[in-house]
Nucleic acid binder design. Structure first.
Length: 285
DNA sequence: AGGGCAACCTGCGCGC
DNA sequence: TGCGCGCAGGTTGCCC
């Protein structure tokens, strides 16, 4: 048991993909009657325009790139949404009172409401013309997705050779490969037997290949397992993920490495908690 | 121009 | 009991 309090989500690519899959059938075809914004900073750009433009528009579908959700609306509009740490959507019936972490309400003509909740208020949504989403600050520098045809070995090897900083920071940056966050990066490095502070450009070809294969395998596997539920991440139907049962290092500092029995160590890398095995994860400098 | 890091937020757990 | 502090982490923006 990792935590007892059920109040945090940690959406990385597999969790966001499970949100997309579960949420899309619940909202597709609905028409906005009114948007209410209760905490202005969630909306990137002009909030009044955001509400005005979306009124009377129909939801055509929900897509995703990296950790970004893309709500497709009629008349060529898209809402780019990032859940950051704890954001989540819930489709509810008309309700009388909203919790204080409910920041945006999408009210539909059928009387249902899509509520955006976010305790830490880190999440953002931005209205753009469909087709211009890759010009936004968040999406324009994203690398390819793990498991996609553009995430090929020669590309990955070439990208790593351009970075002198450590491999953990490099993988978290989203520009070499997108969608990985703190949990999956630690797991991927453990599986690849690479120390998080290894210099990205110093990795031998053999380790780069192992790392590439691991990234390409673990993300689709985590999607298949419904994502990772550390505290309370659930999909739009309230279902928890199962990948936490496969975690080898995240949340296990002080416990024994499942490969060699050495006690796992926790350090800070780029301000992020980082757990690894000091014995079987090799440092390359 | 790559890289380092504070800032953005709130709730929880811990030490005193 | 209660207060203060550190921690949690994705992204942005600023500075070197």
């Amino acid at each position: 048991m990792i935590g007892t309090k059920l109040n945090k989500t940690m959406p990385e690519l597999p969790e966001v993909e499970n949100v997309r899959r579960s949420l899309e059938p619940l909202i597709k075809g609905k028409v906005v009657s009114k948007i209410e914004v209760r905490y202005d900073k969630i909306i990137d750009g002009d909030t009044v325009r955001f509400c005005q433009v979306l009124k009377d528009k129909k939801i055509l579908g929900l897509s995703r790139y990296g950790k970004y959700l893309l709500f497709r609306f009629s008349n060529g509009w898209t809402v780019v949404s990032h859940l950051r740490m704890e954001g989540h959507f819930r489709l509810v019936d008309k309700s009388k009172s909203w919790s204080k972490s409910t920041h945006v309400l999408w009210k539909f003509t059928d009387e249902s409401v899509l509520a955006y909740l976010d305790v830490r208020k880190f999440g953002r949504m931005q209205l753009v013309k469909t087709g211009t989403e890759f010009e936004t600050t968040g999406l324009q520098k994203l690398g390819p997705e793990p498991g996609s045809s553009s995430f090929i070995f020669s590309y990955f090897e070439n990208e790593l050779s351009r970075h002198r900083r450590n491999i953990k920071s490099t993988l978290l940056a989203q520009s070499v490969v997108c969608g990985l966050g703190n949990i999956y990066v630690d797991e991927i490095l453990w599986r690849s037997r690479i120390h998080p502070l290894s210099c990205a450009k110093s990795l031998p070809k053999k380790q780069i290949r192992t790392l590439w294969q691991t990234i390409d395998a673990i993300i689709p596997l985590a999607i298949q397992k419904g994502g990772t539920t550390i505290r309370s991440y659930t999909d739009a139907n309230g279902n928890a993920g199962q990948f936490q049962n496969f975690l080898a290092v995240y949340g296990r500092s002080g416990q024994k490495c499942r490969r060699c029995g050495t006690v796992l160590v926790k350090i800070k890398v780029q301000g992020r908690g980082t757990t690894f095995c000091p014995h079987c994860q090799e440092v390359f400098r």
